[in-house]
Nucleic acid binder design. Structure first.
Lengths: 191, 191
DNA sequence: TATCCGATGTCAGTCACTGTCGTCAACTAG
DNA sequence: CTAGTTGACGACAGTGACTGACATCGGATA
């Protein structure tokens, strides 16, 4: 056994989510999180770049899923078809941890600073998605547009899912939102 | 004449943009900005909520333009048609201050913290746009989707505009990006 | 066994941001 | 004209996020 308890990072994540839920993000200090995790403030900052990042560790895991899903989409799929594959793959991952996701989202919804961080994570995914689409041979402009639009669709579907009843299926809701967008676009044409 | 030089806020904005451009955002302290503007650090924080906000004052002016543009769109316009009106109105405002916009964007592009703030400003506009569309009688889900998608389109068009040659017209580029999205959506249908 | 390494603790320091209070010109009521 | 009020700012002290430098020690390695 090591000199310290294992999984320091995980303990910090857990302690932070608890404290942020209990007393709010602003009312929690990093020192308190570290203390609850049995560590020091300095060690917190060795694991997370700042006070917010502790809530955003696992989106990193989604990145691998995105590239993978797009890569394994059928070769003849359209740009938005490939996007659909990526988004539903992400959705499937989230579908597992619904309760944690909901608790986390409740904290984020209460604090603008956290919302900023969430947005930039989404933007990062959009950039990654753009890159992956380009790798499929999709033209630059179409790739960027499809990716940005896809993320917008994901946001809408995620919000509906997290706020709706338990039985909802996120991947399904993503597909529905995409189809909805399609019909909006068709209407735009006939304006 | 007053006890102090007029337009303290404007002087702070100018000083900040200069310093951020010269030595970078992180390497600039609020005290330095205040000093260049002939004020104190405390006064800076009376005008701006934090170190970043000094770059994001004028997007607030865009908000009025959005609601106005959507309101004055033809009654029979589609959801994305109304969005087009809002986006091109914003585009027209930015078209005026191209040089300042470019300088500002260069600073933002260098710093993730500033990108976060920019993203949340965009999200705020999306929310406002959603609200305005609902006021036109567009269904909730369609309004949110149209607004989010519209902002995504705006981002793409803005980037092309700010990075492209001087002669480009932002409102035109917004319309082009919207049409491009439309064709992407049509392709999605025939996948 | 000697040495190195990696994760953590300790401590001092900077800077973003806030609360409080004092100052003084301009404005307003009488 | 005088007294009180207000608005914009300066001065000062304090908290907490975040960083750099260095010490510690169990475990892996030569």
């Amino acid at each position: 056994m090591g000199r310290w308890e294992p999984n320091a990072r995980g303990r910090l994540e857990e302690a932070a989510l608890e404290l942020y839920s209990e007393r709010g993000f602003e009312q929690t200090t990093v020192a308190q999180i570290a203390e609850r995790a049995g560590l020091t403030e300095r060690t917190y900052f060795r694991h997370f770049a700042d006070k917010r990042e502790v809530l955003f560790g696992f989106p990193g895991q989604l990145h691998a899923g995105i590239t993978e899903a797009v890569a394994s989409a059928p070769a003849d799929a359209s740009a938005l078809g490939a996007v659909e594959a990526a988004l539903t793959a992400m959705g499937a991952v989230l579908q597992e941890r619904r309760e944690k996701a909901r608790k986390r989202q409740a904290v984020i919804d209460e604090n603008p600073e956290l919302q900023e961080r969430e947005l930039i994570k989404m933007a990062t995914m959009a950039a990654l998605l753009t890159e992956t689409l380009r790798a499929r041979g999709i033209a630059d402009s179409a790739a960027a547009l499809a990716a940005e639009t896809g993320i917008a669709v994901f946001k809408v579907a995620f919000e509906r899912w997290i706020q709706g009843p338990d039985r909802l299926d996120l991947p399904t809701m993503i597909r529905e939102a995409l189809e909805e967008l399609q019909s909006l676009a068709a209407d735009y044409g006939t304006r």
